[in-house]
Write a protein that binds this DNA or RNA. Structure first.
Length: 534
RNA sequence: GCCCUCGUAGCUCAGGGGAUAGAGCAGUGGCCUCCGGAGCCAUGAGCGCAGGUUCGAAUCCUGCCGAGGGCGCCA
């Protein structure tokens, strides 16, 4: 890769000046302004203190040395601003990108090895099985699923889970609510009053166990909604099965054996404050019943059997829970760094300019299924993935519906459809692609062609950054920019038109193929479909 | 009161310590004789406030202001 070549050249030049820096320490960046070249380095600014020279002076000396050891692709290098070394490259470096994309293909390009040999267990959504998934929960689904795809592309062995709370107070309340609806009796206090409860109650067989039946019914609903948005899980972990296996007892035993458990005020406590939690937490209530915390610890402990790094995606309303879980896991012998919680901000749903408060119990809700049915799975999924998980997201249902046709996802998918269309049209015209090695890529000099390759060249680093920052939205941002580059190219650079020279046509056909590969990878990471026609 | 997030254009949001802070939507004006106009091109406006660290801060630190969330022997 060109950045490595440039960094190595800079490192060599520095060592000639008596400054030793590993090439990997030298950062190459893409200048914001095109006039500032193709690549830029700030080494002179960073090293100036150590070198005892001012940055521009050092940069100038670097250039002198670089001239004698010139790299092929460097057309010209210059000192700019406070001391940047800017490289203006010949288009060859972008033609090399095209070659790389074609030779590595859809499967190999932008595949990273940063996660090789590591495994991640990723839990997300895990909404209680007491009703349909609401539209806010869809965000965790889209996020988690895309993050898992990104992890996998980076070499992490990734295992995804949905923790099903199919026992406990909420499920019993839900079961009782189903019964009350079916039998026409009074709803229990704090029972579930949503429309779906009445609907489901009428489906419930007389001999069914309301809790078990209700959970199963809800889970099927959730599963289906997520699947329609292309979100799936490797494992649906049942809390009930976990508890039935005796995991609660063995977990408490292990914590006791470690000396982390105290008894006072009639209850059994875990000294989580020893690990930075605000206060200690109750394991067994004074009535002897375990709190929800116990099975949760057992579950998290067990997840380490399916990954070295355990990650939870949690809504902001659960962030207070992280220190106690981290404490408990450390007591059980896990490294603090092997447990990570990603805290996502909640979604605000707006309709007719008014915020819709979501509550399963009172029944005011917007189901993720409604959203998907209204705008389509790709629009819904991309809407979730457009923004950083740190951003409190506002989804305006009216706007999403009324502007469904100009949704950003179509901008991207339209580019893919256009590529497919070029292929079809090439068939119609009897144009075939020649052997890649015989194609004259040097003919690709139009700025639109080069911009397209430039965008394509940034995909590998974007994927790694997205994995490192746990930020699928960086792929969204990338693919929108990539689509813009493609539409610009498509507008200005005809491929099949009769006035295009055959050699140029061949080069462009391969360029289009490389773009197809780029879109294909990006759309797959986002879990979006790649339509041949729209 | 304490803790966690977040304040960027009219709206929804990008912005890995770097140079002149970017998109989309909304507004205005242009662009189809052959590959799909769901497209392309042009145009106005902005980093909540105050300090600090740094050669350099939207980005890191502190304080203030504002918004959301959390502070149960609930889950």
């Amino acid at each position: 890769m060109i950045t490595k070549v440039l960094a190595a050249a800079l490192a060599d030049a520095l060592s000639e000046l008596g400054i030793d820096v590993a090439p990997s320490e030298i950062h190459m960046e893409r200048p914001a302004q095109r006039e500032h070249g193709d690549w830029s380095s700030n080494v002179a600014l960073v090293m100036s203190k150590q070198a005892g020279r001012n940055p521009r002076e050092l940069a100038a000396e670097l250039l002198t040395v670089l001239e004698s050891t010139s790299v092929d692709q460097i057309q010209r290098a210059e000192v700019a601003g406070p001391g940047f070394v800017n490289f203006h490259l010949s288009p060859q470096w972008l033609h090399d990108v095209l070659t790389e994309v074609i030779s590595q293909g859809e499967d190999g390009y932008a595949r990273s090895t940063i996660g090789d040999g590591q495994s991640i267990n990723l839990e997300f959504v895990s909404a209680n099985p007491t009703g349909p998934l609401h539209a806010g929960g869809g965000r965790w689904g889209a996020y988690g699923d895309s993050l898992a795809r990104i992890f996998r592309r980076c070499g992490y062995q990734t295992f995804t889970e949905y923790y099903v709370n199919d026992r406990g107070l909420q499920t019993e309340l839900f079961g009782d609510s189903l019964l009350a609806h079916r039998d026409g009796t009074d709803l229990p206090e704090d029972g579930y009053a949503g429309e779906y409860v009445a609907e489901w109650a009428s489906e419930m067989p007389d001999d069914a166990n309301p809790v078990a039946w209700g959970c199963e019914r809800a889970l099927a609903e959730v599963q289906q909604s997520l699947a329609s948005m292309n979100v799936t899980f490797d494992h649906w972990a049942s809390e009930k099965a976990l508890v039935d296996s005796g995991a609660m007892e063995s977990t408490i035993d292990a914590l006791r054996a470690g000396g982390w458990v105290d008894e006072h005020e009639g209850a059994t406590w875990l000294r989580t404050s020893d690990f930075g939690d605000e206060k200690d937490r109750v394991l067994l209530k004074s009535d002897g019943e375990p709190t929800y915390f116990v099975p949760d610890i057992a579950y998290h402990n067990q997840k380490f059997e399916r990954g070295n790094l355990v990650i939870d995606v949690l809504g902001a309303d659960h962030h207070g829970y992280v220190p106690r879980m981290s404490a408990a896991l450390q007591m059980l012998g896990h490294q603090a760094s092997s447990y990570e919680a990603i805290i996502g901000q909640n979604v605000t749903l707006v309709r007719s300019g008014k915020e819709i408060k979501l509550s399963k119990r009172t029944g005011t809700m917007v189901e993720v299924r409604d959203l998907i049915e209204a705008v389509g799975p790709d629009v819904a999924r991309f809407a979730y993935l457009l923004q950083s998980i740190d951003t409190r997201q506002t989804i305006d249902l009216d706007m999403l519906s009324s502007q469904a046709n100009e949704n950003p996802v179509y901008y991207v998918q339209y580019a893919y459809a256009r590529i497919a269309s070029v292929g079809r049209e090439a068939n119609n015209r009897g144009v075939t692609r020649s052997t890649f090695n015989e194609t004259g890529l040097a003919l690709l000099t139009h700025h639109r062609e080069l911009e397209l390759l430039r965008a394509l060249s940034s995909l590998p680093e974007t994927v790694e950054i997205a994995a490192r920052d746990r930020s699928p939205h960086k792929i969204s941002t990338w693919i929108r920019e990539f689509a813009a580059a493609f539409h610009g190219f498509y507008h200005d650079c005809p491929v099949l038109r009769s006035d295009v020279e055959p050699d140029l046509q061949q080069a462009r056909l391969w360029l289009v193929e490389s773009a197809r590969i780029g879109f294909s990878i990006g759309l797959e990471l986002l879990g979006l479909t790649a339509p041949e026609e729209m």
